[in-house]
Nucleic acid binder design. Structure first.
Lengths: 239, 239
DNA sequence: TGATGTGAAGCGGTTCACAGCC
DNA sequence: GGCTGTGAACCGCTTCACATCA
């Protein structure tokens, strides 16, 4: 199917894998639009990436292109899905059945990406036993046993900052290796656990800082910039 | 009050300001715990930063420390708040009254950081006129006039990916300069607008990639790593 | 003495530019 | 001819190490 997969043992930067995620989304759009083939230059132009970076990112995982022609859209899309592990279903436990947590249960992106929330936990006695979207809220005390029973691979932490560290320790002790955290606190974790913190507070404060700066007198410059989220490039591109 | 503020015109990296946000949170905790003074070394040890980096980050904005002594916790905290513009209230418009959007209206972090959601927009006729937490949902058609009337400075986009680009253009045309986006699509924006995309899809896929990798045979290594969110360091720290 | 502030070194990611191949 | 894959240059962020100062 594909020539070389994970052949290079050298470490791939998280910046690279984050970009793969973007490339995949672009390719899905292109495939839906019926595009058969695309060059790294076209992809770069259309989505404001750098073409060399696209090629380098892909090269970590094999040779997917055809010289003189470009990349086959559907093939590359499928390869990226496979590289990112999106061809397998992942069972997710949500911890914290507050506003944010409850919204996440419905989050379309989870379903779309083969992430299935199959358990919800809280420590509030008033919530335990209630249902969120047909999932009964379990007592956090039972996390380990329920997680093992349900083969949970991923935990989503949506509890107040004060509780986050202790929740993380329970989760980690239960053998969960992948955690998404929404609590805006610096957490410590064993190095074999992958922890992604989505830090809304810092994002907000970044906006606040921007607003506090004197407006750049850019003249009549109206350059478009691509809307890369934090985490896609190490260095802000000047143009 | 402070010796030098914003004296250096040289550009401050977003990585730096993101870290200021973390330092601030640490200092708030320390102040609450009654700590009066702290050295960059202690701060680094306790929260897993690098002490030189802390000093350098702060040095962009002035000389806040006392040689041989360290930093005064409350003073530095107040300075950071001011630098980040958190001493002023920011009016926020939420666009998209779905699950995620509605949850955000309640998000404690907004209130805590002086961000006040004063308007909610949607384009679904069934939702317009309804209320989310006492805020009436307005027609997105009226965004510009309502935003001007209410002095909105910040827009939060929580609409489906397909609608995000056109919403962003409306927001941008209305003169909004700071946008937080939750739609997982690459958006294009004029360069005088600050756009922070919170990309849950990429975060998820990053976890998925991690799970798809063969487990690192780290031996018995049990290093703790600090839980920095994406966007705080350009380079993943090895230890 | 002890900790800050900072020049310089180190390092990793991005971009350039082109050899190699279809 | 056109585009990929990639070594090398480049660039910016991080870290070191120390002069400086309370």
């Amino acid at each position: 199917m594909f020539k070389a997969m994970a052949m290079k043992v050298e470490k791939v930067s998280e910046l690279t894998t984050n970009r793969l995620s973007l490339y995949l989304r672009c390719l899905e759009g292109l495939a839906e639009a019926g595009r058969l083939t695309i060059s790294s230059d076209d992809l770069a132009r259309e989505f404001h990436f750098n073409s060399a970076q696209i090629r380098k990112d892909l090269a970590y995982f094999g040779e997917f292109g055809v010289r003189g022609k470009g990349y086959e859209v559907e093939t590359l899309r499928d390869n990226l899905r496979s590289i990112l592990g999106l061809d397998k279903c992942h069972k997710v436990a949500l911890i914290g059945a507050g506003n944010l947590g409850s919204a996440l249960v419905d989050y379309y992106g989870f379903h779309q990406r083969n992430f299935h929330i199959t358990a919800v936990f809280d420590s509030d006695p008033d919530k335990i036993g209630q249902r969120v979207k047909n999932i009964e809220i379990s007592d956090m005390k039972n996390f380990s046993s329920v997680a093992k029973r349900d083969n949970i691979e991923v935990a989503v932490i949506a509890v107040p900052g004060t509780a986050a560290q202790s929740v993380l320790e329970i989760v980690s002790a239960a053998g969960i290796k992948a955690v998404m955290n929404f609590a805006p606190v610096p957490l410590k974790v064993s190095s074999d656990v992958k922890l992604n913190t989505v830090d809304l507070t810092t994002s907000l404060e970044s906006l606040s800082y921007f607003l506090a700066q004197p407006p750049r007198t850019n003249g009549s410059e109206t350059l478009l910039k691509s809307a890369r989220a934090q985490g896609f490039t190490a260095v802000k591109n000047k143009r």
